[in-house]
Amino acid sequence: MLDLSSRFSRFVFGAVAIAIGLFLFFPIYWLTISAFKPDAELYRIVPTLYPHDPVLTHFATAFGRGNLMQQLKNSLLVSCSAAALNTLLAVYAGYSFAKFRYRGRRLVMVFLLSAQVFPFGLLLISLYPVITDLGLIDSLPGLTVSYIVFALPVSTYMFYSYFSQVPSEIIEAARADGAGELRIFHTIVLPVSIPAVVTVFLYGFMWSWNDLLYAMTLIISEGKRTVGPGMLLAYLNEVNSDWGGAMAASLVASAPIICTFAFLQRWFIQGVTAGSVK
């Protein structure tokens, strides 16, 4: 039986958790209901808490106007490529840092992580001429590379943290069993690191999908736009502010990431907590 102070503590913790949940969920709720509200209801001085007269016209606008499908396709291509390549590079780098001892290892790690100290926008200033010189400006591969540059240090560190907690004995046992280093990594370490792989993949994917600044700066052509800048420029520009259309397009644009997260969240959560109990 819980005593009074314990019950009070539980109540307070529960209330705080619910408040945070509501606070975080509210924008999603507002986005969703706004997408279904007709313009008249959308622009009322006193907003309604749910669509009194739900309509699908904004969705028709979203799919009819601009290049939403093309932008979704571009976003998916860039996000999946960036997430996959970032995971591929980070997984080897993180393993190397965590499980091998060699001269300069710590220094390289410090260099790698120091990139994170600089603001996101500042890195773009130095990245822009590089991307231009490489002939990758206004190209999806250029955008992909820029996302990898930014996500790689944290991703490497995430893998480093995870692999540091993989018991060295199972690696040594595999060595004694006759496995080479690559085989050990691929057949022993990687299969037990699925949560970390999923976590890093999701990190890279969400990072790329949600970006606006890099995509707006490095992509110029309409046909190569990703969904973020595409929506912004189509619905909320100097001459136009179609909130209903923007909300409907945002809802559609959010679908892939929600689906990806829902599909992978079981491993994602495990990945986040895996190190705490091992």
Binding site: P167, I170, E172, A174, G178, P191
Partner: peptide, 27 residues
């Protein structure tokens, strides 16, 4: 280690967690 013809039993077992007992033993 593999070419020394030795087998080592570790303090914390060091079993491969994703493999069955048979796979562990036969690896």
């Amino acid at each position: 280690p593999a070419d020394r013809g030795i087998a080592m039993v570790f303090q914390n077992y060091a079993l491969y967690p994703h493999m069955t007992v048979a796979e562990n033993m036969g690896y």
